[in-house]
Nucleic acid binder design. Sequence first.
DNA 1: CAGATTCACGGTACTCAGTACCGTCGAGTA
DNA 2: TACTCGACGGTACTGAGTACCGTGAATCTG
Lengths: 226, 226
Amino acid sequence: MSTRERIVEAAFALCAERGFDATTVDDVARRAGVGRSTFFRSFASKEEVILPELDALLGAVEARLAAARPESDPNAAVLAVTEAARLVLQHYLDEGERARTRYHLVSSVPSLRTREVAGQIAFQRVFRTFLGTWLGPDAENELRAELVANAIVTGHNFVLRRWLRGLTDTPTEDFDAAMAMVRTVMPAPFGRAIAPSPTLADRARRVAADLEALLPALHDLGPPEE
Amino acid sequence: MSTRERIVEAAFALCAERGFDATTVDDVARRAGVGRSTFFRSFASKEEVILPELDALLGAVEARLAAARPESDPNAAVLAVTEAARLVLQHYLDEGERARTRYHLVSSVPSLRTREVAGQIAFQRVFRTFLGTWLGPDAENELRAELVANAIVTGHNFVLRRWLRGLTDTPTEDFDAAMAMVRTVMPAPFGRAIAPSPTLADRARRVAADLEALLPALHDLGPPEE
DNA sequence: CAGATTCACGGTACTCAGTACCGTCGAGTA
DNA sequence: TACTCGACGGTACTGAGTACCGTGAATCTG
């Protein structure tokens, strides 16, 4: 188990015992068997131990959006943002119980909640930036991009939260339904111009096309580093 | 000038000189001619000095929404949220230059930005809560309420930001236009079922009706306290 | 008017997050 | 063996936020 993982485990264990506020960084470091310096070398703040990997997720979303080729048709744009959001949802679904305990912790601690919200804003920003460049520079288009970006993130959060609270066992289906509603809510050239809910085959085709467009850039990057 | 105001003035002056991070609470208290205890008795945190009155604004918005009587027709609901958002915009417009200097400060200081975002979430929460109760309990309606609430706040922020950055001299007209676009983006029973842009007379009638509905509750409250 | 109460304020002392800096130990390298 | 490099632990510091107490002036009360 790496140093980072040991620290995370210690932090979650202590927070479960005494709560987040009553847990000091010294406590966590001692329980993890590391020095205080090492703690802050691994995590920028006390909050980041509970909410790590936001940056990694953000990078994944950005990569997915950068791989999209929406110049040809606006369908690809909608699909790209949808699939990028699905990436985030899937990440939390894969985490399973850890995501649920984190949710309850974050819900009850203001400083954690604030930190999480800051992360969501970062996601909205990425979506907005891409949508903005795809739509072109114009005050109206900027507002459109922002509305769509926020709608996507809101829809995603809605489904994720329901799953975290145990209100649904079919999060991916819910996500499809939520995105369908989000699409009805999109201004032109998105939304109503588009077929109501693309089939799985459609989605697969789109993703394949996007991936193909991504391949040259991937080759330029060379082999993975670690 | 009250103690609070003296502290705020001192804080803005010092932040203009050295920046927010380089300004300590002791500095602000000394410049304002008060003790450190008094500072934290007047403001809960260092950030709150730069971003005060968020709570007051939130209360005004809540009161405006509580005064709406949307049971009769959904038009009143859309109008209420629009006018409540306009309340916030107007507040910043009235502040004038102070709002602009605050904007530049907040934009460049992460901790202030985080605090501001937390405030926006609070606004979204209020809008969502009212819209949710108006729409009735149902998973789909909850999502609708959230989408509409976010769209309203997004539209408001968009216009406000453009005005703060000096990109427009007609913020109220821009706000009308933005809300028109937000309306096109609303799911049923809002949005497209509604006349595109209500006239001033319409708006006045609605506000008058809402106010009349509010009167009994006002009488119950008794005379103002200060 | 004298005594009691209230309250806003200043001062002190403390906890704890976050930063800067330094010394150390072990692994890889010439 | 001698050198470098990077991860680690330890120490000391700054500054936000909290808890608590004493004081003085204003207000209430008999």
